[in-house]
Amino acid sequence: MSKKQTSGIKWLRKKFSSLLVLLLGVGLFLFVFLPIFYIATMSIKSQSYVVSGEFSLIFFKPSFNAWINTFNNPRIWTGLSLSVRTATISTVIAVILGTMAAYGFSRYKFRGDDDFLFFILTQRMLPPIAIFLPYTLVWQYLDMIGKWYNLLIPYILISLPITTWLMHAYINNIPIELEESARVEGCSQLEVLWRIVLPNSLPGLLMTSMFNFALLWNEYMFALFFRNRTLPVEVGAGIRYVELTPWPTLSAQGVFLMVLPATFAFYLQKRIREQPITF
């Protein structure tokens, strides 16, 4: 009798805890999903619906005016082209420099090598305003304020540390014997880098490039300060003066800005979960 009772309680507890897990999971999903869903649906509402005071998450009459407005706005397109240009060029240069350094630090033991690696990483700790203030004088002097390429150096500067760090962690996992084997088999040191190290660190390169691109694509402060109207600056300008632009249009711009980096999420979550990355 009592045995039956305990098993009944156990059964209830089991049911209850799996229900709890389900609730937690759904809660977690909604915690992340709802805010994004909210802005996404806002972008396909009509301004008149929004100001009418009606409120529904799902049941409303969709309107694509906001998106039409966004795509008809030439500033969005110039911003997009500027963002693509600066983010791509800076990412490529940072990844090349950072990977070279990461490989060197990973394979080459010299006095103080850890200190030099750490030195590169510290660049990421510089307060952005401390970078901006001296640069603004130099750019003024060189008459480079407002020129698109004034972003490249600060952008490489802020993405180089993460590149070096991630690639260092990644290349450390490639056994050195692979390289030695290739050396004995006739490769020069450069060929080893090209034929063995790079192909085998492709996932790491892809991950690092995505991180950097997302970082720079979203960069706002330097672009604003050095007067480059990249996409975040264009979108941010609208949001700062929210009263002047209709909410749905702002939402559409916000969504437009986040779409590209969000596509990296699927690949990156897998990479991050694969192996712990420490220093």
Binding site: F29, P35, I36, V242, L250, L257, M258, P261, Q269, I272
Partner: peptide
């Protein structure tokens, strides 16, 4: 995989979009 992908999207989303999302919320 599904949940992890979802969880990573906010981090990849720029601060500008995030600021806007929450200003709206």
């Amino acid at each position: 995989t599904g949940l992890s992908t979802m969880l990573l999207i906010p981090a990849l989303t720029g601060r500008i979009s995030v600021a806007y999302i929450w200003r709206l919320l």
